[in-house]
Amino acid sequence: MASSDLTLLLTALAAACDAEVRRRMAEAGHPETRSVHGYVFQHLLAGPVRVTDLAGLLGMTPQGASKVAAEMERAGYVARRVDSDDQRARVIELTARGSAAIEAGRAARADVSAELLAVLDEPDAFLASLNRLSDTTGALRELLARRLRPQ
Rank of each mutant, 00 (worst) to 15 (best):
L58P: 02
T11E: 10
M25K: 04
L130Q: 05
A69M: 06
S134E: 06
L120R: 02
R109D: 01
G138H: 01
L144F: 11
A79I: 15
S66G: 13
R88K: 14
V112P: 02
V21G: 01
V119D: 07
A65L: 06
A145H: 10
D121C: 00
V82N: 01
V36S: 01
L120N: 00
S129D: 12
A2R: 14
Q42Y: 07
A145E: 14
E20Q: 12
A96Y: 11
S4N: 11
T33C: 14
S134I: 05
T61K: 08
R90V: 13
D111H: 10
A19R: 13
Q87N: 05
D111T: 15
G38A: 01
A19S: 03
L9D: 11
Y39L: 05
E32R: 08
P48H: 07
L148Q: 07
G59S: 09
P123F: 09
S113W: 13
R141G: 02
A26P: 09
L10Y: 01
A2H: 14
A128I: 04
T11D: 06
S66Y: 10
I92Q: 08
L116Y: 10
A125L: 11
D121L: 15
A125Q: 07
D86I: 08
L127V: 15
A100Q: 14
L44Y: 07
T52C: 06
H43S: 08
R90D: 07
L140Q: 10
R34D: 10
T95W: 12
E142F: 05
G105V: 15
L45H: 05
A145S: 13
D5W: 04
E122P: 00
G76V: 04
E71A: 06
A89P: 01
D111N: 05
Q42N: 13
F126N: 00
A96D: 14
A139I: 12
Y39D: 11
L9C: 09
